[in-house]
Design a protein around this nucleic acid. Structure first.
Length: 606
RNA sequence: GCCUUCGUAGCUCAGAGGAUAGAGCAACCGCCUUCUAAGCGGUUGGUCGCAGGUUCGAUUCCUGCCGGAGGCACCA
């Protein structure tokens, strides 16, 4: 990295200044030298505040004095440095020789789709769990944010050399009453599809589907799940079973006991698992439509079936971190920083969610992952201490568990807040209400525009209406333009030379330099975005780069025209730049999971 | 009440111990005989919630206050 080389230059200068007595002997030469990209390019290619940081240990109060001394000890003739300046309160601004920018084009050409990737974090095995929506409803618009964040974070980590596995945790435990309630709702809808009117909790009557004969009304379950998707599932099950469970459901609805209790059991089990299967499948389809695929779908129920929940509870007890109280078994989570102890096993002998989740995280570690990332909604923040406490109580490396809380997403529709969640039946579906309208690319970009740490407001109507103003098109358009130039060059039979063949030193225009500088920044930006868990930096970078490319496009003609002939060497050098920029933009969009179109139709009447 | 988090341009949000605080959208004025105008140039827009503190330097860190959101289950 160029910054390492520059830091070395400054380090040497600092030591030299001290040895020569230009800086006091007490000067702290071990101080880390930070190089940053200045806010304004007039301040050079890189700058450092090292002189200001040395004020304390040198006892010199004027930063400019220290900076001047350091500059004196930087060799006047240097391979990399064009000039060095002292500025402001004592910044040292470094101006690099132009060729270092051109080097980026060699690297890009050489690395192609790998430009921006490193193997710096090779050896890390990361399990990234995200979305994990309850299997009682579709993937919502709110889930979309976590889906986009998790998917791109996984891409970013992989680009740093990590081995990343995406996982979805299906909360399908049998002792979960929500699954049961959900299955009952599906059953009611099933009967409705067979022709039975439904008596809703508020007393209203919902008509049944047209049927050949009169059908008795049946009751919609108390606190059942509203929403059309429930009927969709009932319809699918109805088609599969061809009415097989109709009679027994009818008996049940009428409060009659079936002749054969086994039939009833079988029916209940069937509906539970069929319902679950359909719901999970629907979730999976919605996520795939969003471009998110998981390596593993981990079922909570498997932890019970394999006895892992039991094993985990036993382990916690062996380690002395549980105690019985009031017929329940408690975890001493306060010993690990939780605000209160938590119930592991209820007085009805069923394990709690935390017991299963502890087993789940133990399972993750057992699978050999070096670190775990959970992406949860901010409404879970009270839960994190408990989870970490349970992991710590198991003797597992809790510091390797990174819980990311995404701030809430509130939904708006035409400026009005959409209140309530799935239970109110107004869930906005990721696929139907967003992707189908604005497309996957725009939806992904939209979610990744902001940091997950900021609460987001998604106005679905606005998002749809502003499709043509979504910055994603700005970025994609820049890519399409570059492709167009390359396509035209081919038509004109102008070959794109290799970086070596081209006279890159002709790239002197300020717009060319700006683009080159940005291309050079790209790998560092990827690392930063990965390390800080900040995928939104990528969308910002993409907009910046696209903006610079448009400026380049306006000011630097690549292909000669009749009115503006130009030397073939310049055309060739610019073609190399265009091709390099195209590669970087495509790589960037690739990380974002957004397509990089080679052509975009111009639309009128926008 | 306690805990977490957010408060930056009209709107949505970046930034993060440093140099003149940025972008997109919105508004207004210009630019298509052009490698695609989904573009470019220009204009308007800010006491970085308030008050202290630390620092050579704070919008950024600390404390308090005000305001918004969320969490404080033998729910998942």
């Amino acid at each position: 990295m160029i910054t390492d080389q520059l830091a070395q230059v400054l380090q040497t200068a600092m030591e030299s200044a001290r040895t020569h007595g230009d800086l006091p002997a007490g000067t702290d030469t071990a101080i880390p030298i930070r190089l940053e990209t200045p806010p304004d390019k007039r301040f050079g290619d890189y700058s450092t505040n090292i002189a200001l940081a040395l004020k304390r240990s040198t006892g010199i109060s004027d930063g400019r004095v220290i900076a001047s001394v350091l500059c004196k000890h930087i060799p006047a003739q240097h391979d990399l440095l064009e000039k060095v300046e002292v500025a402001g309160p004592g910044f040292i601004n470094l101006f690099l020789k132009p060729f270092w920018l051109h080097n980026a084009l060699f690297t890009i050409e050489q690395e192609g789709v790998c430009y921006g990737r490193t193997s710096a974090r090779k050896g890390e095995r990361i399990l990234l769990e995200f979305v994990s929506a309850n299997p009682t409803g579709p993937i919502s618009v709110v889930n979309g944010r976590a889906a986009a964040l998790g998917d791109v974070l996984a891409n970013l980590l992989a680009a740093q050399g990590c081995e990343v596995q995406r996982e979805f945790y299906v909360n399908d435990a049998l002792n979960s009453s929500q699954i049961e309630k959900f299955a009952l709702t599906v059953q009611a809808r099933y009967l409705q599809l067979m022709g039975h009117p439904l008596i809703m909790p508020d007393g209203r009557l919902e008509p049944g589907a047209p049927a050949a004969h009169e059908c008795e009304p049946v009751e919609f379950p108390q606190n059942g799940y509203p929403g059309e998707y429930v009927t969709d599932i009932a319809r699918a099950i109805l088609q599969e079973t061809k009415g097989r469970y109709y009679q027994i459901l009818l008996q049940q609805a009428a409060g009659e006991e079936p002749q054969n209790p086994q039939d009833k059991q079988e029916q209940e089990a069937f509906f539970r698992s069929a319902t679950l299967q359909h719901m999970v499948l629907a979730q999976r389809n919605a996520l795939e439509a969003f471009g998110v695929t998981y390596q593993t779908w981990f079922y909570e129920s498997s932890l019970y079936e394999n006895g892992e929940v039991e094993k985990t509870i036993a382990c916690l007890t062996d380690r002395g971190y549980t105690y019985p109280q009031e017929d329940a078994l408690w975890l001493r989570s306060t010993e690990f920083g939780d605000s209160k102890d938590r119930v592991l096993v209820r007085s009805n002998e069923k394990a709690t969610y935390i017991a299963a989740d502890a087993a789940y995280h133990a399972n993750k570690f057992e699978r050999g992952f070096t670190s775990l990332i959970d992406i949860l909604g901010a409404d879970h923040h009270g839960y994190v201490a408990r989870l970490k406490a349970s992991v710590a109580a198991l003797g597992l490396p809790v510091e390797q568990l990174n819980v990311i809380l995404t701030q809430m997403v509130s939904l708006m529709r035409d400026g009005e807040a959409v209140i309530g969640g799935k239970r109110k039946g107004v869930v906005l579906e990721l696929k139907e209400d967003l992707i189908d309208d604005i497309g996957r690319d725009a939806a992904r970009f939209y979610f990744l525009l902001n940091s997950y740490e900021t609460p987001a407001t998604v106005d679905v109507e606005l998002a749809k209406r502003q499709t043509n103003e979504n910055p994603v098109f700005y970025v994609q358009y820049a890519h399409a333009r570059l492709c167009n130039i390359l396509r035209r060059a081919e038509e004109m039979q102008v070959a794109v030379p290799t970086a070596r063949e081209a006279s890159l030193n002709l790239l002197q225009h300020t717009r060319e330099i700006d683009v080159l500088r940005k291309l050079t920044d790209y790998p560092g930006e990827i690392t930063l975005a990965a390390d800080r868990i900040a995928p939104h930096r990528l969308t910002r970078f993409a907009m910046d780069l696209a903006g610079l490319l448009n400026l380049f496009y306006e000011n630097c003609r690549v292909l000669p025209s009749q009115e503006a002939p130009q030397p073939v060497e310049l055309t060739q050098a610019r073609l190399v730049l265009v091709n390099g920029a195209r590669i970087v933009l495509a790589n960037l969009l690739g990380l974002l999971g957004i397509s990089a179109p080679e052509r975009m139709e111009r639309q009128e009447n926008l």
